[in-house]
């Protein structure tokens, strides 16, 4: 077992008029190499949970274990452990501070205490992983890049630490459709190449459908669903209850089913839904 979350409770501003319970006795188990999506409306506790997974918050009660060791405890061992979890916040380009792309991406590896040759190798590797040409961009000022490129530099700066667990909070927020697709493809490729554990927080059900195999849904600080992606994302009742839009392909299949057609409803990508309709309507050439 890679990560265990035990009875985790988190309360902000405890004992003040602004007290807010963000997580209530959450229990989770995550295996190495899993690809997990986290869903939930604003205020459901998603960001609090992922910050706990990265050891950035102190639990009000309960604990988070990474390979059996509490990730928030003091001392060098726990710090080393925390650095095995990479967390990209929403709009990660906001964290960029260095004068060159190289130094920005090298910040994390240097903090790991690696020697300069290894740092340089990791920077190159990470830039290539995010689809940037190291030769072309390494010495450029990050602030002269486009918004999409800055996002990729920020992600590279996390990848360069070679985390065993990578957490992405809304990685495609604010990107145009093409940028979205390109980024999702990249993330999938990193995961396959490094076999890291991937945790993606997103409202975009289509993004999750493309990337993850297991989805955890939160609502008001509690886990309300935890299961295979296909099952959770086609649970119309659940999605409505947590305030999410039912993916249009699922809504369509659901409506067809209600009209008496024998279609499966757990097809949330347009291509999959089209194939399903084609199968039931007996169209030729539709096998994908």
């Amino acid at each position: 077992m890679l990560i265990q979350v035990e009875n985790l409770t988190h309360i902000y501003n405890q004992g003040t008029p602004f007290e807010r319970v963000a997580l209530r006795e959450v229990n989770l188990e995550i295996e190495a190499g899993e690809r997990i999506g986290i869903l939930g409306p604003t205020g459901s506790g998603k960001s609090t949970l992922v910050q706990h997974l990265a050891g950035l918050l102190k639990p009000t009660a309960g604990r988070v274990l990474l390979e059996g060791t509490p990730i928030h405890s003091k001392g060098a061992t726990a710090r080393k452990l925390r650095l095995q979890v990479g967390l990209a916040f929403q709009y990660p380009e906001d964290q960029i501070f260095e004068q060159t792309v190289f130094r920005e991406v090298a910040f994390g590896p240097r903090n790991l205490g690696l020697d300069e040759a290894e740092v340089a190798a990791r920077v190159n590797w990470a830039l290539e992983m995010v689809g940037l040409d190291p030769v072309a961009v390494a010495q450029r000022m990050p602030f002269t890049l486009s918004g999409g490129e800055m996002r990729r530099v920020a992600l590279a700066s996390i990848l360069a630490m070679r985390p065993r667990v990578l957490i992405l909070d809304e990685p495609t927020a604010g990107q145009d459709p093409q940028g979205r697709r390109a980024l999702l493809d990249k993330v999938g490729a990193w995961q396959r190449e490094t076999n890291m554990t991937l945790i993606v927080v997103s409202h975009a059900l289509e993004d999750l459908a493309r990337l993850v195999e297991r989805v955890i849904a939160l609502r008001e600080g509690r886990v309300v669903a935890d299961g295979p992606t296909r099952q959770v994302l086609s649970d119309v009742k659940l999605l409505r209850a947590i305030g999410l839009d039912v993916p249009q392909p699922v809504a369509l299949l659901q409506a067809l089913r209600q009209a008496g057609k024998e279609v499966r409803v757990d097809r949330f990508l347009p291509a999959e839904a089209a194939s399903e309709i084609a199968r039931v309507w007996g169209l030729r050439g539709s096998v994908t």
Binding site: D176, P177, Q178, G179, P247, Q248, P249, L252, P270, A271, A273, A274, I277, A278, W281, L283, R284, G285, S286
Partner: peptide, 19 residues
């Protein structure tokens, strides 16, 4: 670099398959 709305996307695929 743009997309289609999902329903339009499905409709066009089905049309291409002869529906």
């Amino acid at each position: 670099g743009l997309d289609l709305p999902p329903i339009v996307d499905i409709a066009q695929r089905l049309q291409a398959w002869g529906l």
